[in-house]
Design a protein around this nucleic acid. Structure first.
Lengths: 207, 207
DNA sequence: CGTCGCATTGATATCGCTCAAATCCGGTGG
DNA sequence: CCACCGGATTTGAGCGATATCAATGCGACG
């Protein structure tokens, strides 16, 4: 089997792996079913969603190339969410048993796996904190300050602004208006999908 | 040393642990310094804060009892944020070296550590999902459905309703009103701090 | 008692949601 | 090459849910 590799995919796991090609909106697994594989996004994007009563969907996570899927479900008996490709995607998968054997046998693999879990936990908690903010502008600022790079907190939006709005718990209209207002007020600068804070004039600076 | 235990704290780690009492606003560690301990909140609350250039602070997370602090710092050479007690708190800590030795030597501890990370990841994502709901009533229903016990999703509130409101991303006034309305409408029943759903005429309930 | 914090309810303001419409842009087919 | 289409982006108007401000009752605690 020809297995082209993403750099983030563990070498040790490659012998056990198989590939899946998913069309957009194609489902990978479903909430309530028992997990039998560990999945890895090689190309595209796979969305973890849960559905409310009226069919409203909540995006728990949008996994991009280089990420594992539903790490949290590995040791539970059922998936707690649906996984759907949000665009044509390529996914690698390995049997759960193979993965667990590797965790037990390969010390360094286990370490990097724990690091990965911890990193995802951090970002999830940052998101909780972000969604606790009441105003749209504060959420945008929080996003830039916590995920932006460099002294200006520059951030390249990888998805559409519409998708970003949903991740921020806003409607896309609100996000558009908020970004426009922040830009007009000189708080941020925008070049296409690249955002950054503009203000570095420290009001408390003496002399 | 008398080491009273939070149920979430791993048994195997207890011999290496020491306690810290923190006053409100007392700092536990600082961004940029190398991590030397793993921390666990036993009582109170510890806030992870990152500072912008004008001293504006962004709360990345407010760690409550039963949570580890900055688990991801195990692999990085420096903390990426400050940790400050937001109220008088009790924190357990173990030397990073002890912790890592235990992870490497004790297979079952490593497994339970990964399970703990995964469980915390799940609850964090459940909170993200909850905060993505737009109405106060939906958030309360989500809380009961995802954390309640039994067929009626009974839930005992351990903190004050005021604190609960903050975890739900609401003001306490809104929560009071919402609970009162849901009770009047017969959606929930309330006995003090015990809540439960009264009717389950929900056709597509998940569980 | 007096004080402090939680719980509760009322009145009003405000921000984001909803519905609606115009524009832009990339892709697609004639 | 151009007309058309669908989705993203943007702006407008109005409404409603939640925040905000305010007042009161209540229980704990010194």
């Amino acid at each position: 089997m020809s297995l082209s590799r993403h750099p983030g995919f563990p070498l040790a796991l490659q012998p056990c792996v198989s590939r899946l090609d998913l069309g957009a909106t194609q489902q990978l697994f479903r909430a309530g079913t028992p997990p039998r594989y560990i999945h890895f996004v090689e190309e595209g994007a796979v969305r973890l969603v849960r559905h409310g009563r009226q069919g409203e969907e909540v995006v728990l996570h949008d996994a991009r190339p280089g990420e594992f899927l539903a790490e949290a479900s590995l040791d539970s008996s059922r998936y707690h969410c649906d996984a759907v490709a949000s665009q044509p995607s390529v996914v690698l998968r390995a049997a759960k048993a193979d993965f667990q054997r590797l965790l037990a046998d390969d010390q360094s693999f286990a370490r990097s796996w724990m690091a990965l879990l911890a990193a995802q936990l951090r970002t999830a908690r940052a998101r909780v904190e972000r969604l606790s903010l009441r105003s749209a502008e504060e959420r945008v600022r929080h996003l830039l300050l916590s995920e932006g790079r460099g002294s200006r907190c520059e951030l390249e939006i990888t998805s559409s602004l519409k998708d970003l709005a949903r991740r921020l718990g806003l409607t896309h209209e609100s996000l558009y208006r908020t970004l426009a207002r922040m830009q007009k007020d000189g708080v941020i600068a925008r070049e296409g999908l690249r955002l950054r804070l503009t203000k570095d004039d420290d009001p408390d600076r003496m002399t």
